[in-house]
Amino acid sequence: MIENRFKTALAAGDRQIGLWVAAGDPYVASLIGHAGFDWLVIDGEHGPNDLRSILAQLQALESSPSAVVVRPPMGEAWMIKQLLDIGAETLLVPMVETAEQAAELVRAVRYPPVGKRGVGAGIARASRFSTVRNYVQQANENVCLLVQAESRKAMDNLSAIASTEGVDGVFIGPSDLGADMGVTDGIADTQFQRLIERGIETIQASGKPAGILTFNEALNHRYLELGATFVAVGADIALFTSALADLRGRYPVTSKK
Rank of each mutant, 00 (worst) to 15 (best):
D176Q: 01
S159L: 13
E97C: 12
G87Y: 05
A139G: 03
R71A: 07
C144K: 09
S127I: 03
D43G: 12
L40G: 02
D185Y: 09
L51K: 11
V28R: 07
R110W: 03
A22D: 15
L10N: 06
A22W: 03
L145V: 04
V136H: 01
P94W: 09
E100A: 15
E3F: 01
Q148T: 02
I42P: 09
T214M: 03
S130Q: 14
V183A: 04
L244E: 10
D176K: 01
V167E: 01
A124W: 00
L146Y: 11
L58T: 06
P112F: 06
V147L: 04
E197F: 08
F6N: 06
I54T: 11
S163H: 00
G33M: 04
N216T: 14
V114M: 01
G166M: 05
T241G: 11
M95E: 06
R125C: 00
A124Q: 01
V70A: 06
I54P: 03
A205M: 09
V183T: 01
M181L: 15
G166C: 05
L10S: 07
M1N: 05
A60V: 10
D156Q: 15
T190F: 12
G173L: 00
A9G: 06
L55Q: 14
I237K: 04
F230A: 08
F240T: 12
R194F: 13
F37M: 11
L244M: 15
I123R: 09
F215T: 13
A103W: 03
S127R: 00
V136T: 08
I172E: 00
R52Y: 13
Q101P: 01
F240K: 11
E97Y: 11
Q101I: 01
N4T: 04
E201V: 14
E197Y: 07
G18E: 04
G75Q: 07
D25Y: 08
T8Y: 08
E225H: 12
V106Q: 04
T241N: 14
G227S: 04
F37C: 09
G178C: 03
V136M: 08
V106P: 03
G44S: 05
V167L: 05
A108C: 07
T98Q: 05
F129Q: 08
V119T: 12
V253W: 06
R125E: 00
I237W: 05
G122I: 06
A139C: 09
E150M: 08
L177K: 07
L145G: 02
P48W: 07
A210W: 04
I161R: 05
V69H: 05
V170P: 00
G33K: 00
H46A: 10
P113I: 05
S30C: 12
G186L: 15
R128P: 00
L61G: 03
L84D: 08
A238L: 13
Y111S: 08
R15E: 15
T8V: 15
Q16G: 06
R198N: 15
E150Q: 11
K81W: 03
T131K: 15
S163R: 10
F230E: 00
L239E: 06
K116R: 13
G36N: 12
A77M: 10
I237L: 12
G186H: 12
V231G: 02
